[in-house]
Amino acid sequence: MALNTPQITPTKKITVRAIGEELPRGDYQRCPQCDMLFSLPEINSHQSAYCPRCQAKIRDGRDWSLTRLAAMAFTMLLLMPFAWGEPLLHIWLLGIRIDANVMQGIWQMTKQGDAITGSMVFFCVIGAPLILVTSIAYLWFGNRLGMNLRPVLLMLERLKEWVMLDIYLVGIGVASIKVQDYAHIQAGVGLFSFVALVILTTVTLSHLNVEELWERFYPQRPATRRDEKLRVCLGCHFTGYPDQRGRCPRCHIPLRLRRRHSLQKCWAALLASIVLLLPANLLPISIIYLNGGRQEDTILSGIMSLASSNIAVAGIVFIASILVPFTKVIVMFTLLLSIHFKCQQGLRTRILLLRMVTWIGRWSMLDLFVISLTMSLINRDQILAFTMGPAAFYFGAAVILTILAVEWLDSRLLWDAHESGNARFDD
C-alpha cells in the first residue's frame, strides 16, 4: 500500500549564491595573561575582544583620537594649579581661619623630617597626573615632529594605576569627618577644581587605549598563520617573532617567553612588605597634641575612634588600611606557593584573586592621604596640633611594595603550573 505524501511548494523562490571570495581570516594573537594562541577576527570600533580561555580583555573598544586626548590633557593642565594650590577646605580653629590644600599637606610631611613619605604622596597625587598630561601632550606634538614615541607609550600603561586623584578625593571626605570634632569646616574653591580634575582624569584614563596608539604610530604586520613560536610582548602586546637582537619589532624591548626574574622580584617585594606591615600596624601612625597632652593612634585605634562619629567612614578606612593590605599579602603568598608547588586545582579562583588584588591594591594609600591633609588643617603649635607617627613611612612603603609585587608577577606562570593543553579552566 503506497502512502500519498503531499508536496510542499515554497511560496518564495530560494536563491543560492556561491561564495565568490575567501572568507576573511583572523590574525593570530597570544593572550598576555595566559599565553593562549588564538585567531582574533577583525574588530570594529566600539567592540571589545576577550581571550577565549581566561576571559582577559585583549582589545578595548573604547578609543579616543589623539586630538581629543590632547584637549583633555590641556584642560587638566589648566585645572591643576587651582586643584593643588587653592584651598580645598576652610576650618575655623580657636577663632582663626585655616586653609588646607594639597601642596601644603605634602610640605608639612616633608617639613617634619619625613621627606620619603611626603614624596610618596607627591608622586601619586601630583607627579603621576602631571606625567600623564605631559605624556599625552608629548605624543600629540611628537607625532607631528617625527619624534620617538616608544618610551612614552611604554610608560603610559604602567602609569595608570599610580594616578590616585580619586583616592585622594575620598581622603578629603575622611579628613573632614575627623577634623569636624575640633573645628567648623567649609569647602574651599580649590575643592571644585579638584573634583573637576578627578572627573576629567577618570574619563581620560578610561578612554586612553595605549594598544590602539601603538597600532597608529607603529603598525606591524600581524601573524596570519598559526605558529607556536609566536611570542607576545608584555610592553606593547604585539604578537610576532623577535628581531635579530631578540627584541620586539614594535617597542624594541627584549621579547622573552616569560617575564625575567618574575618570581624572585615578586618574592622579594612580598617578604619586604610583610616585614614592614608589622611596625606599620604596631607603631603610632598619627599623633595629636591637645592642650599640651599627647595622644597617639595606631591604624586600628584611629579607626575605632573614627567609628564613634561615623561608622560608615570608619568601615571604608578599615577596608583600605587593614583589610586590603593583608588580603593582598595572603593572596600573593598563596599564588606564589601554588606556582612553586605546581598546583593544578582552583586555577579559576587564583586568576580571579590576582585580578582582584590588581584592582584594589592602590586604595591602601588612602590613610597616607588623610594624614597629609589633616596635617595641613590642624597645626596650632602646642594648643592643638596633628602630626604623623613613625608607622606612616612603614605603611606607605608596604603598600608600594605590594603594588610592585602584583605588577611583577607574570600571570602566565600560573598556567605553566597548571596542566598543559587546557582550553578551559575551572575549579
Rank of each mutant, 00 (worst) to 15 (best):
L354A: 11
R355P: 05
T298M: 12
I136K: 13
L413S: 08
C266Q: 05
P242L: 13
D63S: 15
G346T: 14
R348E: 11
R350K: 11
R97F: 03
R231M: 08
L154R: 01
D381Q: 06
P87Q: 05
L153E: 00
I96D: 01
R412Q: 01
A417Y: 11
T5K: 11
R350L: 09
R221W: 14
L263S: 12
Q7P: 08
M155G: 02
H90R: 08
I371V: 04
W162F: 10
S262K: 04
P6Q: 07
V275H: 07
S273R: 00
K265M: 09
A417P: 12
R221C: 14
E407Q: 09
D243A: 15
R62Y: 11
A137D: 03
M304F: 13
A196Y: 15
I316H: 02
L78M: 07
K12C: 03
R62P: 01
L282P: 02
F333D: 07
L404K: 08
A175T: 14
E42C: 05
G240V: 08
F333S: 10
T11L: 14
L337T: 11
E407L: 10
Y28R: 11
L282R: 08
R30C: 07
L323I: 10
A307D: 02
V163P: 03
S273E: 05
A397C: 05
V198T: 15
C233Q: 00
M36E: 12
L354C: 13
V133A: 02
W162G: 01
A115Y: 05
L263V: 11
T202Q: 13
A83E: 03
F123N: 04
P390F: 07
N148C: 04
H237R: 06
V313T: 12
L40F: 05
P41D: 05
I316F: 07
G118L: 01
F386S: 00
K229E: 14
P10G: 04
C34E: 00
H418G: 14
T402I: 03
I299Y: 01
W162Y: 07
Q344T: 12
Q47E: 04
E228S: 14
P6K: 08
S301N: 07
P284K: 10
R245F: 11
Y182Q: 04
V324K: 02
T15C: 08
R245M: 13
R258V: 07
I339D: 04
M375E: 09
F318D: 01
V357L: 10
L153G: 12
V170N: 03
L197M: 15
C236N: 00
L290V: 09
G113Y: 07
N422S: 08
A73R: 01
A397Q: 02
E215W: 08
P87Y: 07
L213I: 10
I126Y: 15
V203S: 14
R380F: 03
N44G: 06
F341I: 14
L271S: 10
S411Q: 12
S48N: 15
K229P: 13
R150L: 03
A49K: 07
V399C: 13
G118F: 01
M76E: 03
I330Y: 13
W84S: 07
G127H: 03
G142Q: 01
N143C: 15
L69T: 03
Y50H: 15
I19C: 06
S364N: 00
W140C: 15
L300A: 05
F369I: 05
R247D: 15
G113W: 09
C343V: 12
L377M: 06
L169R: 01
T298F: 07
L336H: 06
I322W: 09
L377E: 01
A314P: 15
L132G: 07
G246V: 13
Q344S: 11
L337H: 12
S411T: 11
V195H: 07
D181Q: 02
C31M: 00
L368V: 10
S119P: 05
L282D: 05
W84R: 13
L93R: 00
